[in-house]
Write a protein that binds this DNA or RNA. Structure first.
Lengths: 190, 190
DNA sequence: ACCTGAACACCGTTCAAGT
DNA sequence: ACCTGAACACCGTTCAAGT
């Protein structure tokens, strides 16, 4: 074997699952930094210390890799949002707690908000908000003539817009926006 | 000159401004249908009845063409939203009128909502909402301790999310969502 | 199974050459 | 000025060949 040849086969001390995770982590970071189309397969592979051809051994297309990254990102936020949904006595309290927790998750995982924004994937927030509104309807906190699905969608629309703004505004301006969004949910903005 | 050669020079009866407009219209449609990266320069040029090389005579890069398309799209919606902002006695009435008019604009220009969503550009809605909230603050309809920029951003976030939902939901479900959004603005959802 | 370099068709963009 | 076909570097993806 010539000394100039590149190493072949799986490096010692790494499992297939670890390699997969390394690729997903690299993908989340690169997509957050450069956007979905700006993050090239070659760069993601390089950040995961392999060739683009090797990456295709783990993910058959860029779309499938993105879907796996979206699912991984969701698993980070979902349990925390679920916990937050338990806090608070009233529906408005719970909604505010979930929105606030979503903000904290963004702070703890700096790449996450930019990644979700770049992919435009449905956030775990939708699920949690739907649950809160459903429960509000069961407990009678929602006016009887209000469509619960419509209410969940409206609140979800608000949070989608907030996530988008988070990437556009300064942290200070975004914090002010969040406070107003909470006032809006509590019915005391205007 | 061989009979097989393609025509050269500007076709008779067209001005430079008309050609520019034709390119922009084609760009809006293709981006709405295929997304920003899915809409290729070659396809946009083809839809505008020219070569991609010719298109570069009018726009130096794809980014500049997209910016021009965004500006053109804005000019469609802005006057109508401005008019709607005059209607209604209270702040909530005016906000609801603008949101409703934005919905009608989307219906009148089927490609527009998808295009704005695909480009992620700041919509003319932002400007109009900012004006309404500023006026609300001057007239004292906004609580003194509320940051007016934050309030405008929060309402804008809601409308951005609504626009996104419009593409995802059935017309019926979207209408229910719009009604709940109005209730939310009026402070009587929860 | 896992990895490689080299190739494929396609993209945004450029350019010499035509009218 | 306006348009063309042909080329450029780069992208996602494939593949024969290595261990």
């Amino acid at each position: 074997m010539p000394l100039t040849s590149s190493p072949r086969g799986r490096p010692a001390g790494t499992s297939s699952a670890q390699t997969r995770q390394r690729i997903i982590t690299a993908a989340i970071r690169r997509v957050a930094e450069c956007g979905r189309s700006g993050a090239t397969i070659r760069e993601i592979a390089s950040a995961a210390e392999m060739t683009s051809a090797s990456l295709y051994h783990y993910f058959p297309t860029k779309d499938k890799l993105m879907a796996a990254a979206v699912a991984a990102a969701r698993e980070i936020a979902l349990p925390r949002l679920h916990d937050a949904a338990q806090r608070g006595a009233t529906v408005a309290d719970r909604l505010a707690a979930v929105v606030a927790e979503a903000d904290r998750v963004s702070r703890d995982h700096p790449y996450l908000a930019a990644f979700e924004r770049a992919t435009g994937a449905a956030s775990p927030l939708h699920l949690v908000l739907g649950e809160i509104v459903d429960e509000a309807r069961r407990s009678g906190s929602l006016a009887a003539d209000v469509d619960p699905r419509g209410a969940a969608n409206a609140v979800y629309a608000l949070t989608r817009g907030l996530t988008e703004q988070a990437a556009r505004l300064s942290p200070e301006a975004y914090r002010a926006t969040l406070r107003c969004a909470e006032d809006l949910l509590r019915g005391r903005l205007f």
